[in-house]
Design a binder for these strands. Structure first.
Lengths: 147, 147
DNA sequence: AATGAAAGTGTTTATCC
DNA sequence: GGATAAACACTTTCATT
């Protein structure tokens, strides 16, 4: 079981990255192989862990989240575990990484309006200090790693 | 053309968020409606802009990117446009936001090893100063906004 | 808006190269 | 590892409620 991917795999991942619901048949035609081959390749890419799955891309603005904020959390002594748990459970936080340096976490927070920011952050005041920046634009929206 | 979504839409988006390739028929059965209804709903969600599309979720580690970094860029005077363009073109940068405050951009950078960090950042030294943190864990991997 | 049924496609399996 | 072809399953259209 080799964990290497070839040019066909790369072309397939690129095509699926553009439309993850494209039919095997259509992908087969586009890439010049048969449908069963496409199906085999996708299965193998999932087996070796390269392809985690197929997901939706939603528009936060269309859902009423007109503002996005990047919040850095600096945990108070002994509060790291509780802070992480609260971040996991906050559904307005749609992404969060634990990082090196004095800031324990960086999170992406969705807001319906600027008025929501303070109340949301106040829920964390017993566990961390925060530093917030508002997202003005997203020149690179989440994209595939180079294959 | 109403831009509101109902409980069925929410259940549908949630199900597609778990497996964006599930067949209309299977979704129909799961949600207790007919396949044509599912298809109509998905089309409408795309039309009103809530559902941008269907994409793949890849594992950077399985692709050899064993390190992830969060880089903050502070643009030098007059270099903002060039900096943004270079960020867009850097395929190791898989996500980037333009934010308020003294840091012009925050970016997510993929690395094959720590040795790659310095050479990659040096390409930006004429346009910005940088501040880098290494990702130690990702407690919240990109998830759907609350519906 | 949603359904059920039929016609049209796509998927899957088995066999072969 | 990939192709072809037949059996099977899904998708789509349309008439109906």
């Amino acid at each position: 079981m080799k964990n290497e991917i070839d040019d066909l795999d790369r072309a397939l991942l690129k095509a699926l990255g553009e439309d993850a619901r494209k039919s095997w048949r259509e992908l087969a035609e586009q890439l010049g192989v048969s449908a069963p081959t496409i199906r085999d390749r996708v299965g193998r890419l999932q087996d070796i862990g390269v392809l985690r799955g197929f997901v939706t891309e939603l528009d936060p603005v269309a859902l009423g989240y007109t503002l996005e904020a990047i919040v850095r959390f600096k945990a108070f002594p002994g509060k790291l575990q509780k802070l992480e748990q609260q971040i996991r459970e906050a559904d307005r936080i749609v992404q969060c990484d634990k990082i090196t340096g004095e800031d324990a976490f960086v999170a992406r927070l969705l807001l319906r309006s600027i008025a929501e920011l303070d109340p949301l952050l106040e829920g964390f005041t017993d566990k961390a200090s925060t530093n917030t920046a508002i997202v003005k634009a997203s020149p690179v929206r989440m994209r595939q790693p180079p294959l």
